[in-house]
């Protein structure tokens, strides 16, 4: 019983952390039709920045500073690596994303010197609590609520503000919305800023649970979050969140069995099944190709 509770709790929490990353993927894909391979690495860099900032600054300054820097990083990546390729074929942008991911990983390797770094303990959320006899971190309980709060805020932003309307217009039809006077570059920058912000928050939650940061620690969560985004229907925020929770829970449950080595593989198997059976995901809109 205790084992089952703790498994499900950590599954939900892992799902929440994936959800925060997945939103970044799904929003960028919705607008630019780009798999932002660098997003997982932005998440990893957020973790590394936190480690270095926490050694010199008190936590109440370090956390906001880290979030601001991550947002800045996301913004700069978009401006430097994706904006010059706006008119280029989609494949070039994707290549650029792979290049950025490679650059960020090597940069992290250089900064950390290849040594695994330990994430700082954050008071309160790193404390352990006991629920139904299962010991777990406070962060496990906080994550789902924080995720839901952030998603609600994001949905309000998208549905009720001017920039939100612009975002929806751009994701519907890039060219037409440009003709209608939507400032494409601003919309895309805001998308990247929101995505990076959520990834930064996600990194605090994720690395509190798994406190070792290496240059590759962004790659797998990134890919899984992307799978979650595809699972939920790419471009759909609620879809990405639900997909992320399902993947997080399934992964944690598999990790508790003899087939632990397949916990990553399961995610991809799920992806392939979804892509073959219902390529638009659970909440995706149907599109028809015109010749």
């Amino acid at each position: 019983m205790e084992f089952a509770v703790s498994q499900i709790l950590s599954g939900i929490s892992l799902g929440g952390q994936y959800a925060l990353i997945a939103i970044g993927y799904t929003m960028v894909y919705g607008i630019l039709r780009l798999i932002n391979f660098a997003h997982g690495d932005v998440f990893m860099i957020a973790g590394i920045m936190m480690i270095y900032m926490a050694t010199t600054l008190p936590l109440y300054i370090a956390i906001p500073a880290m979030i601001i820097c991550t947002v800045l990083l996301g913004f700069l990546i978009e401006r430097a690596a994706y904006k010059p390729l706006r008119a280029a074929p989609r494949m070039s942008v994707m290549i650029s994303a792979i290049g950025v991911s490679y650059l960020l990983q090597n940069l992290a390797l250089y900064i950390t010197g290849g040594q695994p770094k330990t994430y700082p303990r954050i008071p309160w959320i790193s404390d352990t609590v006991t629920i139904f006899g299962a010991r777990t971190y406070v962060v496990t309980l906080v994550t789902p609520f924080l995720v839901i709060a952030l998603v609600v805020a994001l949905t309000l932003l998208i549905n009720h503000t001017k920039i939100g309307i612009a975002m929806r217009a751009v994701s519907k039809d890039f060219e037409t919305s440009q003709l209608m006077g939507v400032k494409i570059n601003t919309v895309i920058s805001v998308t990247f800023i929101i995505g990076s912000f959520l990834a930064a928050v996600g990194s605090v939650l994720y690395f509190t649970n798994y406190p070792t940061v290496v240059p590759m620690s962004g790659a797998m969560p990134g890919l899984k979050a992307f799978v979650a985004a595809v699972f939920g229907g790419i471009g759909s925020i609620p879809g990405a969140v639900i997909g992320a929770f399902i993947i997080g829970i399934c992964e944690t449950l598999i990790k508790g069995t003899d087939y632990a080595i397949f916990s990553d593989a399961f995610t991809f198997a799920l992806l392939i099944v979804i892509l073959v059976a219902k390529p638009t995901g659970i909440f995706g809109e149907k599109t028809t190709d015109k010749v």
């Binding site: 989609r90 494949m91 593989a265």
Partner: peptide, 21 residues
């Protein structure tokens, strides 16, 4: 049957599955 980036991510996924197996 998949197109462009979906194909990319599906094949990437298969490579990961093979590695796990």
């Amino acid at each position: 049957r998949l197109k462009s980036d979906y194909l990319a991510i599906a094949t990437l996924g298969f490579a990961e599955i093979l590695r796990a197996i």
